[in-house]
Amino acid sequence: MGVLKLGDEIEVRPGIVTKDNEGKLHCRPIYSRIVSLNTEQNSLRFAVPGGLIGVGTLIDPTLCRADRLVGQVLGSVGRLPDIYTDLEINYFLLRRLLGVKTEDKKQAKVAKLTKNEVLMINIGSTSVGGRVMSVKHDMAKVLLTSPACTEINEKIALSRRIDKHWRLIGWARIVRGSTIAPDS
């Protein structure tokens, strides 16, 4: 947890994600400087964690439009968590689905995770798809559809597609994963 101050150099990760001709992912973080900090009607000189803070930067608006930066992580240069492409998780499934009733008026049970199943994984404000590569007891390996900036021991939410809707089926804790180095 850090403090943001006017004039600080910042980094946004994973930034711009691209694939090369061989299908290898590349993440190019976005670097900028803080030019303003605001809360509702107050202009700030510094900001601490907790609350809603508007951070004014010199980032090109085309990179920010259409919620493209939702789920990205902002912080001091070089002090952000790693960028993960797959995760090994320790998961816990709910006993019953929330908000879904079966014909006999009972809540449906949550089925176990299966190999090659596609889940939606929420890591903070990031929503990313994930394909289950392997499952063993309460551990699973999940390949992410796009890289995510997160930390080991972070808690994440797991959702499954049920009747054309994403339904919460459980939560997990990140144990380890494969990282990619950001491009300089």
Rank of each mutant, 00 (worst) to 15 (best):
A108C: 09
A66P: 00
V142P: 01
D8L: 09
P147R: 03
P49V: 02
G56R: 07
I83H: 00
E9A: 15
Y84R: 10
G50M: 04
Y31I: 12
R45I: 07
H137E: 13
Y91H: 14
Q107N: 09
F46W: 09
V110C: 14
G78H: 00
I123S: 00
F92M: 14
L119A: 08
L37M: 03
C27E: 06
S146A: 12
L119P: 03
A111M: 11
S134G: 13
V110M: 15
L52P: 02
L74C: 05
S134D: 14
T18Y: 07
L52E: 11
N42Y: 08
R13T: 09
Q107G: 05
F46Q: 13
R28E: 04
L25R: 09
I83W: 02
R13F: 07
L25S: 11
L119W: 01
V73S: 03
N122F: 03
G56L: 08
E9T: 13
V132S: 08
L144W: 01
I10V: 15
H137Y: 03
N122Q: 11
K101G: 11
L93M: 15
L98S: 11
L80G: 04
L44A: 04
L63W: 02
C64V: 15
K101I: 07
T85E: 00
R45W: 01
T39H: 09
E117N: 08
G54Q: 01
N38H: 10
V142S: 05
E11M: 10
G78C: 08
R65Y: 05
E117I: 10
Q107R: 08
T57K: 05
P29A: 04
P49F: 04
Y31N: 11
F92I: 11
S127R: 15
R65E: 13
G51P: 06
E11K: 05
E22Y: 09
E88P: 13
K115L: 07
H26L: 10
D20V: 06
T62R: 04
D20N: 13
G124E: 04
D67N: 12
L52H: 04
K136D: 13
F46G: 06
T39C: 10
L44D: 02
G130T: 12
D86A: 13
L63S: 00
L63A: 02
D86L: 11
N122W: 01
L87H: 02
M120Q: 12
L93Y: 10
G71Q: 06
S125G: 04
N116G: 12
M139N: 07
I34V: 14
